[in-house]
Design a protein around this nucleic acid. Structure first.
Lengths: 224, 224
DNA sequence: CGATCTGTTGGACATCTGCGCAACAGTCTA
DNA sequence: TAGACTGTTGCGCAGATGTCCAACAGATCG
């Protein structure tokens, strides 16, 4: 393995830890996994990090922080409140992010037991809420939205999204993904006092197609 | 360790596993932990359970299943749809149940890695959804509620509740407990087409008192 | 060119994990 | 009281894990 500068190597380790964690989950990411992913020896990881905990904490910070940052950029790219929220749901509803959400499940579960991880989780979670709330405030100011309490609305949106995503990631297709996104968008429209259908559905066709089957599937699961 | 009948011993193991899991989480509860908690040998655990996964699943099944059963009983005690939902929120909003919800966080996080635990988590989660949905259907039939899709409404109620409870348990008082209960009840009233305030607030005084301070606290946290 | 620095190696070490097994010890029956 | 039944033990196995360390190798400098 070619030599690297300490900064580069540190970043590379975090990157590799993230790659492994996304594939295997936080709980079963080991030093040797990260070393193998990077193609280096296991000793090298401990040359840069005091403990494995530090590696995982840095990896989660990087992953969750990067995702938040990218959504921030996407939402900041426009002044239109509707477009801002559309950008938000576009990032949130992506179907290939199950493992990323699994990281959040792990972080929430461990938050009470691992202070550093808990603090990171809380900080980034609040960051999301602030991001949503500020977009809502912008919409209220421009007269697009009607919302008496943007902070509360942001928390409710986030909680509904998280609660639904949680079911999908933890329990498989108990609730069809497209249906849950549709529910979240519709709830947002109600919260913001705008007509149903105002926020664009990114894959309107697919959502419509799966809507009927989706509800049927829910009923089927529920009757099991 | 004195002899026990198989049923007693099995229950004792489940109880001990539960105690340990509450302290360390499902992810890092080991056979030896449970044995130490019970004061017996590790071999005994495997005499009663095929695998550790089964022990944890049984422990979670016991805790979560017991809670679901008690809510079922409470809701079945009345025919009035409003009273049914009131009973539901009474159980859900209790402030001393953080430890129980922590189990759910652990279960959701581990669901993808421990099949038996995941299946149990899914089954009981769906059980809650069915319970809520049937109460809603009863209310629709009696003309009390107006709800086009009780199954969907039940999932949304549960997801909002879980998402909010998650923030409280994982991140401390990011959202004040009483406020989150109030939000959930209000959202339910909107879903069921009944006037705001129709569902009784169990601790209306406390909720009202903390409401203003609560929103202020949300803002304070958000500005950090 | 030789010396020094430091990124990197690969394995040693102690510990922990789930699990299986042969032996032990209470309890009940004939 | 002798024997059978079975709850219980304590250790061993094989694999995994975090951590540490002496040796190696590539880069830099006098």
């Amino acid at each position: 393995m070619p030599r690297m500068s300490p900064t580069e190597r540190r970043d590379a380790i975090i990157e590799a830890a993230l790659t492994v964690a996304l594939r295997k989950g936080f709980g079963s990411t080991t030093v040797r996994d990260v070393a193998a992913e990077l193609g280096c020896s296991s000793g090298l990881i401990h040359h840069y990090f005091e403990s494995m905990d530090d590696v995982l904490a840095a990896a989660f910070d990087q992953a969750a922080g990067r995702e938040l940052a990218s959504i921030e950029v996407a939402m900041a790219a426009t002044d239109d409140p509707i477009a801002k929220l559309t950008a938000f749901f576009a990032s949130y509803g992506r179907g290939d992010q199950d493992w990323a959400f699994q990281l959040w499940l792990d972080a929430w579960a461990e938050a009470g037991r691992k202070p550093a991880l808990g603090a990171t989780s809380r900080r980034i979670n609040v960051g999301w809420q602030r991001l949503l709330a500020s977009a809502i405030v912008a919409g209220v100011d421009s007269g697009t939205f009607a919302c008496p309490d943007p902070d509360a609305t942001a928390w409710r949106m986030l909680s509904l999204l998280d609660g639904l995503a949680l079911q999908i990631v933890a329990h498989g297709s108990v609730v069809p993904r497209e249906v849950s996104v549709e529910w979240s968008i519709a709830a947002t429209e109600d919260e913001l006092g705008i007509a149903r259908g105002t926020l664009p559905r990114l894959n309107a066709v697919a959502a419509a197609e799966t809507a009927a089957a989706g509800v049927a599937a829910v009923a089927a699961v529920a009757t099991r």
